[in-house]
Amino acid sequence: MSFRRANAEPRWVRLLLTAVALGFLALFLGLPLLAVFVEALAAGVPAYLAALVEPETRHAVLLSLLIALIVLPFNVLFGVAAAWAIARFDFKGKSLLITLIDLPFAVSPVVAGMLFILLFGARGWFGPWLSEHDFRIIFAVPGMLIATLFITFPFVARELIPLMQTQGKDEEEAAVSLGASGWQMFWRVTLPNIKWGLLYGVILANARALGEFGAVSVVSGHIRGETNTLPLHVEILYNEYNAVGAFAAASVLALLALVTLVAKTIVEWRMHKETQMLEADLPPEKTQ
C-alpha cells in the first residue's frame, strides 16, 4: 500500500531507528546481563554451584535479605504516613517537605554513608558515648541498616503521594460520614485503594536495599562473614581475582534484578488497568 500517514516517517527511517534503539539496548544492557551468567558458568556448573554454597557467600546472601526485611517495614510505615499527611491535608512548608523526601536520591551514596560515620564513628559526635556503652553502629550491622534506610526511604512515599493525590479524598470522607472510625477507614478504604502503588514502591525499595553498594560500603568495614552484604562480597571476591566466585554471587543479584523487573512490570500493568478503568468511568462532564 502506498498510502502513508502524514505523521509517520518513511519506512527506512523507522527501520533504521528501531535497529539503532534495539542494537544499542542489546549491546549496552543485554550483553552485560548475559556476561554475568557466562562468566559465572565459565568454569562449569559444578564450580558455579560450589561458589554459591560457600559459607561466606551464603552469609552475605542472608545478611542482605535480613537488611531488606528489616528496612522495608520502616519504608512502608514512613511512606504511608508521609503520603497521608501530604496528599490529604494542606499545611505550610509542604513543598519543602516533598523536596526533603527527595533528598536521598540526590545525595551521593558515599556521602550518605559518611554522614553516619560523622555521627556514630569512633571520632563522631556520638562515638565516645557509644563506645562507653559498648555499642557498635559503624562497621557493624546497625550502621548498615541505617545507611540502607537513608538510601531507600523515598521510594514508597514518592510512589504513594501522586497516587493518593489523584485518587482524592472523597472515598475516605464518605467512609467517615458513614460512621467509620479512623482505622476502619484506613483498612477498608485507603489501603485497598493504594495497595498496588504501595507494592510498587516496596519492589523498588527492595531492589535498592538488596543492591546498595556505596553507602553500605562506607559504614560496613568489610568484615568477612560479618558485615558483608552480597554486593560487598562481590567486590571482595572480584578484587581477589576470584572471577567465578564474584560472578556466581553477582548472578544471584542479577536474577533478583530480573525478578524485580518482572514483578514491577506486572504491578505496573495492574495499576495501568486500574487507572484505565477509573478514567473510563469518569462522566463526560468531568473529563472535559
Binding site: 550483553l31 562481590v234 572480584y238 530480573l258
Partner: peptide, 26 residues
C-alpha cells in the same frame, strides 16, 4: 516491544557492583 520496554529499567534493578564488575570484564 513490551519486554524491551520493561528491560530498559535493568540498570535501576541491577545492583551497581554487578554492573561494575561486568562492564570492567567486558
Amino acid at each position: 516491544k513490551s519486554l524491551v520496554d520493561a528491560f530498559v529499567d535493568l540498570p535501576f534493578a541491577l545492583p551497581t557492583a554487578v554492573a561494575g564488575i561486568t562492564l570492567a570484564t567486558l
